[in-house]
Amino acid sequence: MQPEVTQADVVIPEPKKASHKISQTFKKLLKYKLAVVGLIIIGIQIVMALGANWLTSYDPLTQNLSLVNAPPGSAGHWLGTDNYGRDMWSRLLYGARISLIVGFISVVVGTFFGVLLGLLAGYYKFLDGLIMRLSDLMFAFPGILLALLIVAVLGSSLTNVVIAISIWSIPSCARIVRGSVLSVKKQEYITAMRSLGSSDRRILFKHILPNCTAPIIVFATMHMATAILSTSSLSFLGLGAEPATPEWGAMIAAGQQFMWQAPHMVIIPGIAIMLVVFAFNVVGDALRDLLDPNMKKQG
């Protein structure tokens, strides 16, 4: 016998897709004015990075010793040239590419391992102590000091900067993910899934992980800012990019001694770093407000 269907049960269904939720979140994000500014800045950086070859006719490494320290607005070089006569605009463009790539790779690698360790620590009690004490150990070092240490051991290059920043971001990511896992695994739907015979691995990766995506997205966005800033800091200290590389931090370092004759050499990459870090931070902030129901603004 078929059970009756009552009137109350009939709700007109409107199928929704996961992509729908993403576009909805994006639409809501556009209501945050600062986040829109941030998105525009990030968009500009992406265009600069992707279109570096077409946006300038100068090579960022070609020197022109007859035209050194040209101020912004000079003929042919609208952002001026540096102390070797290299075009600042072209260096800024290629620098955008470097900072985006280095930031992105280190965030992806760091988040990957952080999520993995966080999931394990949150789910398996016997691993929790070990993983969390190890991360405490890493937290004991100030971040930049740890990165310095890793670069000092591995030698200075952009690849090693990526490795250093990745390693350094693992513990904070692991801690965030572990927290979410601890709360998600107590939910009834996890017990329900277990009562259906799902294995631990299936529950952990298919049911718990998707419920932790919000904090992971926020972490990754915010960490992008930190990663870009750290890359520049390390390069400024001479531990990252090789001297001639058009990396923003390295450009500031090179411009230091010409502060008074050619201040644009320091100010232009400085502003670029500031804007990008600001952009990722405000977008991350807005995402957190959007995705974390506890952080929602009143009214």
Partner: peptide, 24 residues
């Protein structure tokens, strides 16, 4: 035991609002 659960022995929970995974 895992192969028993959901196969030979099943369970229905008290709170249907929280017993389904919201993201699937």
């Amino acid at each position: 035991m895992r192969k028993m659960r959901g196969n030979k022995i099943s369970m229905v929970f008290q709170e249907p609002m929280t017993a389904l995974n919201p993201v699937f």
